[in-house]
């Protein structure tokens, strides 16, 4: 895929994804999508790319302690078009999410972007 087309697809991700991110279990309405620079680093406990949304569970340590936090992410298809490939994120990897936080301040968030252990961004 050419860089131009890939960029177009990434833009499509940015503008078109979120309506499909809500699911029977989760809803994008829980997240404050106006905050787009909230970086969270943790150890991957689960990374399940799926449509309409991806499930990511990280073991995070911060001022509140160490715990597992579940994040919702873009669809598998849009992560693929953003550069993710099978096997890129594995259990035990240290990764960083750009995660729009929950509106009520509880644990969790919507993963707008991912920085894999090898530095790949998608």
């Amino acid at each position: 895929m050419s860089p131009k087309i890939r960029m177009r697809m990434l833009l499509a991700v940015a503008i078109g994804l979120v309506p499909f991110a809500a699911s029977a279990h989760h809803s994008a309405v829980r997240f404050d999508l106006t905050i787009r620079d909230n970086m969270v680093t943790g150890i991957v406990k689960e990374f399940a790319p799926a449509n309409p949304h991806t499930k990511i569970v990280l073991t995070v340590t911060d001022e509140k302690g160490t715990r597992d936090i579940e994040y919702e992410g873009h669809s598998r298809n849009n992560y693929y078009r953003g550069g993710w490939r099978e096997g890129m994120v594995k259990v035990g990897d240290k990764i960083t999410l750009n995660a729009a936080p929950t509106r009520d301040g509880s644990d969790g968030g919507y993963a707008l972007g991912v920085i894999a252990a090898d530095g790949t961004k998608f």
């Binding site: 994804l17 499909f20 809500a22 699911s23 994008a28 309405v29 829980r30 309409p52």
Partner: peptide, 28 residues
């Protein structure tokens, strides 16, 4: 549904006309 953020797509349901042809969530 709005306060819950529920949508047909969130429940794995296709958009239907005319929405399918007018956007389909940004997917090709």
């Amino acid at each position: 549904v709005d306060s819950r953020g529920d949508t047909p797509g969130g429940w794995c349901l296709g958009t239907g006309m005319p929405g399918s042809m007018l956007g389909s969530g940004g997917y090709p």
